[in-house]
Design a protein around this nucleic acid. Structure first.
Lengths: 210, 210
DNA sequence: CTTCAACCTGACCATACGGTCAGGATTGGA
DNA sequence: TCCAATCCTGACCGTATGGTCAGGTTGAAG
């Protein structure tokens, strides 16, 4: 017991605290933007003294950077759904499913990401130019191959990707607007399914695979 | 001359200054967010002393409110393209064209709007609940009528509208990301046309009118 | 038990921000 | 020409914010 727990105790506390702070930060950054967010607000949200945040994250920008990186990771992992798919119907369908699920489960993260990009990507510009660019080129090639093989209607793969990003992330980023237009109530399970199916139906039919 | 110019002079100056300030504010709010924007930055951008801004707009929030309202107006006017259309191909096609044009010509405005909604629409919530809701209901009915008349494939009109908003506004809100993935260069005239045509092709085929 | 590093935090500081205001300049009607 | 209204702004103020730090607490290795 002691022999196994003790060595982990310190590391655990650190991981837990960091995670707690990051979660609170994600929410506050999403709701107030980087400029509108304050360390005090994040501290209150996390139930910790402000000075404690500065113990784990030197500056507000460091904390923000970490939040953005985490989201980027989740974002990229959604790509796995697209890999190893037999064709566009399966691959793109699964990708839409995955991204809609992310919009539902990580709405704050999606907003932070949107905000970061809208402001000119001051902290993740290098990621855009390396990781994201490579990822995009790769997927575009996959789509192009599907087109060449006659598995789907011809289109510019990049614009198709933009469309997928836009439509799926819209449900997170503009969730408040959608909620308002839904009578002030969040989308129910059924409505989320309808949204997902609706997006898939139009996109898949739009690229000629339905 | 004097009789006609003089009475306008004062009003003209006022209109020009207000417009100048609003334009600068739109850009700064778009690039820094409400919280990150400062009156000093806006003043510098407009080439005016900070105190002058406060002469025309009592508070930062007043200025912001005006910026958001202006964008909302432009946004709603795009709806005119959809009105009086014979069918979905014409109506929705024209609406996409109009919204893509707005994304190109008013990228700052689009970002401010996105930011406002993402942060829970603190200053235009009432507009969302009245004007936007009415507008949306109206258009949804038009689309439903097209569906009932067999002019397009069945779908939830609201989700179709969300898709149109998402895809078109994405080119403004995520313009920086698109630019980065375009080799760091803004979309050319040809690329904008390609984007517009690409979106229209997928959406129109997606609702079965191509 | 001792020791040391990691962890924690109340109190504090310099700065930058939104906003104010007194007083000056300009305009235009009488 | 005079005067009142409008326009303009440098200097100023209170506050809130990001960040610091000295000094205390806790955990665990020896």
């Amino acid at each position: 017991m002691t022999a196994q727990d003790r060595p982990l105790r310190r590391a655990e506390i650190r991981r837990e605290r960091e995670s707690l702070i990051l979660k609170a930060a994600e929410k506050v950054f999403a709701e107030a933007g980087f400029g509108g967010a304050t360390m005090q607000l994040i501290a209150d949200m996390a139930g910790l003294p402000k000075a404690n945040l500065h113990y784990y994250f030197a500056t507000k920008e460091d904390l923000y950077r970490q939040v953005v990186r985490n989201i980027f990771e989740i974002w990229l992992h959604a790509a796995d759904s697209m890999d190893g798919a037999a064709g566009p119907a399966e691959g793109i369908g699964a990708y839409i499913d995955a991204k809609m699920e992310i919009s539902r489960r990580h709405p704050f993260g999606s907003k932070v990401w949107a905000s970061e990009v809208m402001h000119g990507a001051p902290v993740i510009q290098d990621y855009l130019e390396t990781t994201l660019r490579d990822w995009t080129e790769g997927r575009a090639q996959v789509i192009q191959r599907w087109i060449d093989a006659g598995l789907m209607a011809p289109c510019d793969p990049k614009h198709l990707l933009y469309m997928l990003w836009a439509t799926t992330q819209h449900y997170a980023d503009f969730g408040h607007q959608i909620e308002t237009l839904n009578g002030g109530k969040p989308l129910s399970d059924k409505q989320w399914k309808a949204a997902k199916d609706g997006v898939k139906a139009i996109v898949l039919r739009g690229i000629g695979v339905l």
